[in-house]
Amino acid sequence: KAVLCADHGEKLQLFCQEDGKVICWLCERSQEHRGHHTFLVE
């Protein structure tokens, strides 16, 4: 069962290295995470 983003309802499948947390693809494109290094997690 996928864990969903509290903000967007999308699957949490990216790890943001700068923030040390898992985010969704919409979070990654938001101003908050712009320019951060993210990695796909399974």
Rank of each mutant, 00 (worst) to 15 (best):
Cys27Asp: 01
Cys24Phe: 08
Lys1Asp: 15
Lys11Ala: 12
His36Phe: 00
Trp25Leu: 11
Glu28Gly: 07
Gln31Ser: 11
Phe15Trp: 09
His37Leu: 03
Asp7Tyr: 14
Ala6Ser: 13
Cys5Met: 01
Leu12Val: 10
Leu26Asp: 10
Leu40Asp: 13
Arg29Ser: 05
Glu18Thr: 11
Gly9Met: 07
Asp19Ile: 00
Leu14Arg: 14
Leu4Gln: 05
Gln17Ser: 04
Gln17Pro: 05
Leu4Pro: 02
His36Tyr: 00
His8Glu: 02
Ala2His: 07
Cys27Phe: 00
Ala6His: 03
Phe39Lys: 15
Phe15Gln: 13
Ile23Gly: 04
Gly9Lys: 12
Val3Gln: 05
His8Thr: 01
His33Lys: 15
Trp25Gly: 11
Ala6Gln: 09
Trp25Thr: 13
Cys24Leu: 00
His8Pro: 00
Gln13Ile: 09
Glu10Cys: 07
Val3Gly: 14
Cys5Thr: 00
Phe15Asn: 03
Gly20Ala: 11
His8Lys: 03
Leu12Asn: 15
Glu28Trp: 04
Gln31Trp: 02
Gln31Tyr: 04
Ala6Lys: 11
His36Gly: 03
Arg29Pro: 03
Cys24Ile: 01
Glu18Ala: 03
Ile23Asn: 09
Arg29Met: 08
Cys16Gln: 06
Arg29Asp: 05
Leu4Ser: 06
Lys1Glu: 12
Leu14Ala: 07
Trp25Ser: 13
Ala2Gly: 15
Leu40Glu: 12
Trp25Gln: 14
His36Val: 02
Lys1Cys: 01
Ala2Asn: 13
Ser30Thr: 08
Leu26Ser: 10
Cys24Gly: 00
Lys1Arg: 05
Ala6Arg: 11
His8Gln: 05
Glu18Tyr: 02
Gln31Leu: 04
Cys24Gln: 01
Glu28Ala: 06
Asp7Ser: 12
Arg29Ala: 04
Leu40Met: 15
Leu4Val: 12
Gln31Pro: 07
Arg29Cys: 03
Arg29Gly: 07
Cys5Gln: 00
Cys27Thr: 00
Gly35Ile: 04
Glu10Gln: 09
Ala2Gln: 15
Cys5Asp: 00
His36Ser: 04
Lys21Val: 13
Leu40His: 10
Lys1Gly: 07
Gln31Thr: 10
Lys21Ala: 09
Leu12Ser: 15
Phe15Arg: 09
Glu10Ala: 07
His36Trp: 01
Leu26Glu: 13
Val3Leu: 03
